[in-house]
Design a protein around this nucleic acid. Sequence first.
DNA 1: TCGGCGCTGTTATATTATAACATTTTGGCA
DNA 2: TGCCAAAATGTTATAATATAACAGCGCCGA
Lengths: 128, 128
Amino acid sequence: MTRNEALVYQLLSASDRPLSAYNILDALRDDGFKAPLQVYRALTKLIARGAVHRIESVNGFVACRQHDCGDNAVSIFMLCERCERAEEFTDAGLDATLDSLGHQRGFAAGHKVIEITGICAACLDGSP
Amino acid sequence: MTRNEALVYQLLSASDRPLSAYNILDALRDDGFKAPLQVYRALTKLIARGAVHRIESVNGFVACRQHDCGDNAVSIFMLCERCERAEEFTDAGLDATLDSLGHQRGFAAGHKVIEITGICAACLDGSP
DNA sequence: TCGGCGCTGTTATATTATAACATTTTGGCA
DNA sequence: TGCCAAAATGTTATAATATAACAGCGCCGA
């Protein structure tokens, strides 16, 4: 892992919510980051390796919390609208279901995006 | 449905693939569209009504092909990387599964995004 | 040594989306 | 009909997200 990738990865790992590329850029200015490409290039490689996931719904990025994401089923994200935290988990059955739905239609499934927005348990608890 | 909404909706209905907001703007210049907001405002209302869906993976928009999307389960999109067409369908079981996964974690699910990229049947057939 | 390849830096620009405010249209209702 | 209020529209400007293009650096193997 190169220096830039390590910096981006550490930052995402330390964050409890998705960060945008420009959030990352701002956070890493003290480490010498000056241009968006430095962030995007690191993200591209980290994502290819499965160390980071892109959250399409919020144009943000999170460090993978699964141990061996590449070998596992699709990642499912629950995104809290209130606290903005993202919770990642996998479900092999769901992954298989999607593959099957695709197969029924002759569709060769590649990357899958599953994102659910709503209110997380902690925010439901604390709400009036 | 207002004039602008109708124009956007007709355009999307006539397209066999997702269009970006700026694709739509360009296509509707002859109809008097001049600024992105005209497109985004129409899209916002059409989406709220369930007549149009946003495809997060490609920052694009499609007309809903289901008859009564609002009453139905989550929409699942299969996006062909080769021909760029989007196929929409629903699966009540999958919707229930996601609600259940959320419920297990105390998460109140709202909007769900399910998008699968890959190669569609037509493109697989025609490939060498 | 040197030659290539991957990583980096930098500037510029493309793409996607919204803010702010003025104006016009629409639809209910006295 | 005439008027108001709400909704819709138009317009300019700008914010947020993402990529192109090209130059330079550094490491490592032949």
